[in-house]
Design a protein around this nucleic acid. Structure first.
Lengths: 254, 254
DNA sequence: TCTTATTTGTTCGTATGTATT
DNA sequence: GAATACATACGAACAAATAAG
């Protein structure tokens, strides 16, 4: 357990703490000893412990709060199954609430979703994806998903206002079959999908909403749904802590 | 350009440098001013500049070397197209060299691949994925992919030795159609695929091979190819800098 | 509500180590 | 070997958030 040269001390301390978490010495949700104690125990300065904890934070292993302490992250990695989603989406709706719930239940976690809906105008980015003018009116469906009360995903869907106006899409509960069923009823059944996934630093608002650290990373998924005319009828941006998710896919040759 | 409170100084410095890179003031491949100069220029301590550069490094925007300096990362983000890969893989071979080359050519970059092949024994992890005993003999096909001489991906494929033995799979060049064509000829045509993608810190050896910083993140993709009997005939682990890649997929509602 | 103790976050200055030129 | 430039470590100080009273 002694600190040796070669890998820097703060990385060695990080490795020690990581082992203690993996071994269960610091269980899920438990507080770590405070930085001063760890520093004394491991005979390094507090700055080194602080740097080590930064590493664990960026791995999503722990979560620190000023004035409280550092505790082990309470939620295991969630698997997002690409193929199940693609088929279920059509059945259960664009917000994929069914898929999300299934993913969590498989891990013995409970899911909860907060929804807000508003009429707003398209920013340049959204306008380009939706193929409308910048500033054009759009419906924004905002969702925040929780696993056991820990936020694990943000999603905003944009729908052109001329499609959504007056329909149930403007209500919080879109009803059976979800967004995609309502779009189909409105004559805009989504039949073509594209999705881009990238990894980046969170905006500070995203970090706050997901109660994550700015030094951590998020997955940013942009999905576009198109009707038979090729018109974009819904654009969804999903933001999720990168340490919290993995992706899984299965397929057959040809 | 003055430093103000609220977001910490090192994040503000990071934002300033990020803007300079985006604006082209520091072009691709160019050196940044040295930390001392930046510190003087922005009226902060060198530690703050050093912390700021750590942030840019973890975003993959810059690359630092002791004794040399810090320069802007020379390669743009590469898009990995899931669907093209899935179809092309079968046509062009398991190492997807064709797909990789296409992805780079689209960006005006040149691709190069280094291949080494060896007979070795299965580690516990590989054994479980491949469905063989730990320590069983396997063929390891090791690949390192470059974009304009910058390493952008590592891949190791494992094939059970009883399948690969004596075949062209043990040579560096697997010939037309690649690995999957040879497996088909050997009576083990891959027909079922599964893939798991996660994001993590690099091992130090991976960081060295990809000339990236340990504070950066990698995508780790594990793909399993199975024959008609459901036997795993190839397992491929791909490691790539997370800042260097994005994923793209398109599909139709059946 | 206000106050105080606790705990982590950030910054500084300095010193030393290490890789490159 | 010398100079350069980034990497790491330390200790100290203060800021900011939280908790306890």
């Amino acid at each position: 357990m002694s600190i040796e040269r070669s890998p820097s001390e703060y990385r060695q301390v990080a490795a020690i703490l990581r082992d203690r978490i993996r071994s269960g010495e610091y269980p899920r949700g438990a507080f770590l000893p405070k930085e001063d104690e760890l520093a004394a125990q491991l005979k390094v300065s507090r700055s080194v412990v602080n740097d080590a904890i930064k590493v664990l934070r960026s791995d999503g292993l722990v979560h620190s709060q000023k004035g409280r302490g550092t505790r082990v992250h309470p939620i295991p990695v969630i698997s997002r199954n690409a193929v199940v989603r693609q088929t279920k989406q059509v059945r259960e709706g664009g917000d994929a609430r069914g898929a999300f719930d299934g993913e969590l239940r498989r891990l013995g976690l409970t899911s909860r979703v907060e929804v807000t809906v508003e009429e707003t105008t398209a920013t340049a980015g959204v306008a380009e994806l939706l193929g409308v003018e910048e500033g054009a009116p759009v419906l924004a469906r905002n969702r925040k998903m929780f696993a056991n009360d820990t936020p694990v995903q943000l999603a905003i869907s944009y729908i052109p206002w001329d499609i959504a106006e007056g329909s149930r899409l403007t209500e919080e509960d879109t009803g059976p079959g979800g967004t995609y069923s309502r779009l189909a009823e409105l004559g805009h059944k989504p039949v073509k999908f594209s999705e881009r996934t990238r990894e980046r630093s969170p905006e500070s608002s995203e970090a706050a909403d997901l109660s994550m650290d700015i030094s951590q990373r998020v997955f940013h998924i942009t999905r576009i749904a198109r009707n038979t005319d090729g018109r974009a009828v819904e654009v969804t941006e999903s933001i999720m802590p990168a340490y919290q998710w993995e992706f899984y896919a299965e397929w057959d040759a040809e």
